[in-house]
């Protein structure tokens, strides 16, 4: 990387990395607590993952293998740009394969494959404060966190049930971390909430505009809030993935034409490709008569 000799490794200067690492250590020491940090200007607009990029830049080393996903996909603009950014400023290896990566920066999803103790999941967070829309005063919400006054969080869930007959919050679903702090898991679908619970991997959350870092250390309890008579549930999908036949995964709806045609495919593209490489076939890829994963018999696949 001779032409980049004037750049520091991984873009940030060492003092900034030091400051961010200290914030990360504090965040890990107090699971779910939002640690303020001096967020820097990054060469991308707020909302594109400036918090996550700063976290990744502060922890990445030359040996790391980086994977970046946006809505579960490796090939969307945001993911491609951030991956290219780190290739340029840190010259690290990048991958799209979940099991090969040591650092996974994500927006909106947790990979379907189970993460291991050697992996770090970095979330890009737009709004770190779970109480924001209920209590606009930041001084007040900080006090509520400090005194563990979380009744208001249930007011939001109550409103959901009163209006929709069930808890209709489907993303950014509030969780309680290690029995103490209520945390916004960033706009991940609530489908992914159970994956945060007792995870082997370290989870770091960075909000660049809001200047907050928080963390869930490995093997930490993460419990989704609910009511006794309206327990927490994840989304369910009627059909398996149309390409790889996977069930129990989060699916994206893809509109095929203007006549109501649609398909549901894995939102985690790496997971889907991996399954197909191993011979799993979904309804839309199956040649007629071939056995299809996830469906009782192949007749339905022809629909």
């Amino acid at each position: 990387m001779t032409e980049l000799a004037t750049y520091n490794f991984a873009y940030l200067d060492e003092q900034t990395k030091r400051m961010i690492r200290r914030a990360i250590l504090k965040a890990i020491a107090i699971p779910g607590y939002q640690v303020p940090f001096a967020s820097r200007e990054m060469p991308m607009p707020y909302g594109w993952g400036t918090g996550g990029v700063q976290l990744t830049a502060a922890i990445i080393g030359p040996q790391d293998v980086l994977k970046v996903i946006d809505q579960g996909a490796d090939d969307t603009t945001n993911a491609v740009s951030i991956r290219a950014f780190f290739q340029k400023v840190a010259n690290v290896a990048v991958t799209t394969r979940t099991d090969e990566a040591t650092i996974i920066q994500t927006r909106h999803r947790i990979p379907e494959a189970k993460l291991g103790p050697n992996q770090v999941l970095v979330y890009q967070v737009p709004i770190p404060e779970p109480l924001r829309y209920l209590e606009p005063r930041e001084t007040e919400t900080r006090k509520m966190h400090a005194l563990e006054e979380y009744g208001l969080m249930h007011v939001k869930l109550y409103e959901d049930i009163a209006r929709n007959g069930r808890i209709a919050t489907t993303y950014a679903y509030p969780v309680k971390v290690a029995g103490r702090y209520v945390m916004d898991p960033s706009p991940t679908p609530k489908f992914d909430n159970p994956k945060m619970h007792l995870s082997d991997a370290l989870q770091l959350f960075g909000a660049g505009r809001e200047k907050r870092i928080y963390a869930v250390p490995p093997y930490t309890e993460v419990v989704s809030l609910d009511f006794e008579d309206h327990p927490f549930e994840v989304q369910r999908f009627d059909k398996p993935c149309a390409l790889c036949g996977a069930e129990q995964v989060y699916l994206d709806e893809v509109i095929l034409d203007d006549k109501g045609g649609r398909m549901f495919v894995c939102s985690d593209t790496d997971f889907c490709e991996d399954r197909r490489a191993h011979g799993h076939v979904g309804a839309m890829l199956a040649p007629n008569g071939l056995a299809v994963d996830g469906l009782p018999d192949s007749k339905e696949a022809a629909e």
């Binding site: 006054e149 009744g151 208001l152 007011v155 109550y158 409103e159 006794e228």
Partner: peptide, 21 residues
């Protein structure tokens, strides 16, 4: 910005009541 029911229920939820009904 929240319904009358939630306004009345807020204190109950604040002291740990977790049964919607």
């Amino acid at each position: 910005t929240v319904s009358a029911g939630a306004n009345v229920g807020e204190r109950l939820m604040a002291i740990g009541n977790r049964h919607y009904g």
